[in-house]
């Protein structure tokens, strides 16, 4: 039986950032389906419906930032979240530990090796 394709969401208001992550994932020998969102609110709705395996989440976004996103999805979603941000602020790294669904904190740009390791284990 073929396992379901790994479903991955990219949430970043910067389209180019999503483009890069998507390209890296597609060329990492990971069999996955990638959906990119530059509107975090839309992503939040889609998460409830599609229940992705992984979410790559930026922190610094207008309207709904990464922390607010985490707070709103916390209740019943089992998706694993990887924070992918250009900030390497230690306070943010600490804060990320408050959210059990966050499995990693990565600064941009992500390396292909780390992506493989995170998703394939």
């Amino acid at each position: 039986m073929m396992p379901d394709k790994i479903k991955i969401f990219l949430v970043d208001d910067q389209k180019i950032a999503n483009f890069i992550t998507q390209k890296l994932l597609q060329t990492s020998n990971i069999d996955c389906e990638v959906l990119a969102f530059d509107q975090p609110i839309q992503a939040l709705d889609a998460v409830e419906k599609d229940l992705p395996n992984f979410i790559f989440l930026d922190l610094n976004m207008p309207k709904l930032n990464g922390w607010q996103f985490l707070e709103q999805m916390q209740k019943n979603i089992t998706s694993k979240v990887i924070i992918l941000t250009s900030s390497s602020d230690p306070a943010d790294v600490e804060k990320a530990k408050d959210f059990p669904q966050v499995i990693s904190y990565q600064t941009k740009p992500p390396s292909r090796e780390i992506l493989q390791e995170l998703i394939l284990g």
Binding site: I16, I20, K23, K108, P109
Partner: peptide, 9 residues
């Protein structure tokens, strides 16, 4: 970080 990522790919 975008520029670095783009150069990477």
């Amino acid at each position: 970080s975008r520029i670095l990522g783009l150069l990477e790919i």
